[in-house]
Every structure is written in structure tokens, then in C-alpha cells.
Amino acid sequence: MTAAAIPTRRRRDLNLAPLMILASAAVMAGLILMPLVVVFHDALAKGVGAYFAALKEPDALAAVRLTLLVAAISVPLNAVFGVSAAWAISKFEFRGKSVLLTLIDMPFSISPVVSGLVWVLLFGAQGLFGTWLIDHDVKIIFATPGLVLATILVTFPFVARELIPLMQQQGADEEAAALTLGASGLTTFWRVTLPNIKWALLYGVLLCNARAMGEFGAVSVVSGHIRGLTNTLPLHVEVLYNDYDSVGAFSAASVLAGLGILTLVLKSVLEWRHSGELSANRKH
């Protein structure tokens, strides 16, 4: 950075700085940080005992298990898709690429509720395959497969959109060199491409996972809210909250908030340590 090397005098800015910092801190604390604090405060409102009792409840444990299961299926699928899409888009030239990119980004601009609704239109009782599924006794909506499908649709672009800009920027020269030297396609991918994209891949998986575990709107439409069976952790929070079980709801919410904090910490570490290996819009 040349600008930093030139000593600059910004007297007027210096006068403005404390005011701007204070105002920003006020916005961040009042609007963004306060909800996080309230989650833990209300979870512990009746003491640590009540907090852990709420977490050990069988329905809460079932919700945690289901949340982990749904994420364990949908995140790897979207990761494989993300790598495939990024490989095709960044290493090859073909027509219709911008259309493909737009379609991949589309799930981000759709309401989560609509992302759930479309699966009901396909597999719901009065959906396209509804009668067939009932005849063959296959349950998708109000069951785990529906939750997985809704989650996959909502988190669809996360990995792909981290990888595509980075791999486009890296080009295909290194892979071409490896192939010319006699490496097989698979070896080239494992030994050349993957080391180049591993941090960006991890970054995408991290964001994808956070959204998959925390998704509410889409899964709420396909879940049916059956306690202990089709409630993921965010849905469990809703059920308890609507039952006026404040400590229970905020205890379960605190687990999700913890996941959010962990995601932010890991994300920041990746941005600081490996900023050179993330796509350009992730470098702060």
C-alpha cells in the first residue's frame, strides 16, 4: 500500500473520529450485540440448574440430533456440488456461463418460506407426487427427507459462490502444468487444485453449515412440528417459546447462538490467517 507509506495529516478527521467510533459502537451494541446478550441472560434467568435441565430434556436432545443429521446430509452434498460447479465454471470456457451463475445464486433471493413451499408442491399430500407417495407409504413432507431437501435448497449456493471467484482468479495454468508433466486428472485435483482451494472450501462449508443448522423458515413449512420427531433445534425453540417456556426456549436458543459465535470466530480466523487464499470479496 503506497497510501500508508505517505505520512498524511488529517486534522479534521481526527476531530471527527471519536464521534464516529462512538456512534458506530452504539449502533452495533444496541442493534446487533444486544440480542445475543439477551439470549444468554434469559436462558440463565432461573439459574444454571434450570438451564441444563432444559437442555437435557428428551425433546431438546432429539432436536439436536435431528439438526446434526440434517446438516450432515445437506452440507456435504452442497460441498460436492460447489466444487463441481466451480471446476466446470472456472477451468473451462463455454457459452451460457452467466446464466448458470445467475441460476446458482437464485436460492439466495428466494424467501425461505418459498424454499419450503416448493417441496410441499412436489411431495405434499396434494402435491405433484402426493398420491403416489401416499400409495407407496413414503413420507417426505413432515419427515426428515423434507427437512433435508428444504435445507439443501436454502444453503445451495454457499460453497459454490466462495469457490467460483477464487478459482476463476487462479486460472487453470497450474493444473495444465501438472497434466503436461504426466499427472492423472484425479491426482491433479487432489495435489494441485484442492490445496489451492482448501481454505475457501472450508470457509464455504462453515457458512453453509451455520445456515443449515440455523434454518427456520424453510424447515418450518415442511416439518409439521412433531415434537421429538420432526423438530430441528430452531423449531424446538419456536415450540417452547409459543408454550411460554421462556427458559427452555432461550436455553435451546443459546446453543444455536453458541454455534453462531463459533462460526464468527472461525470465519474471522480464516479471514485473518488465510486472506490470500479466500476469494477477493472476503479479504478485509
Binding site: P35, F216, L264
Partner: peptide, 18 residues
């Protein structure tokens, strides 16, 4: 800087009840 992304990272239902 890290906290700016909290609304992305915090599940919406959690933000809602908080």
C-alpha cells in the same frame, strides 16, 4: 468488524425471540 456478520450467523428464530 467480526460482529457485523452476527445477523448472518445468528439463526433467525434466535434473533426473533431475542
Amino acid at each position: 468488524d467480526a460482529l457485523v456478520d452476527l445477523p448472518f450467523a445468528l439463526p433467525t428464530a434466535v434473533a426473533g425471540i431475542a
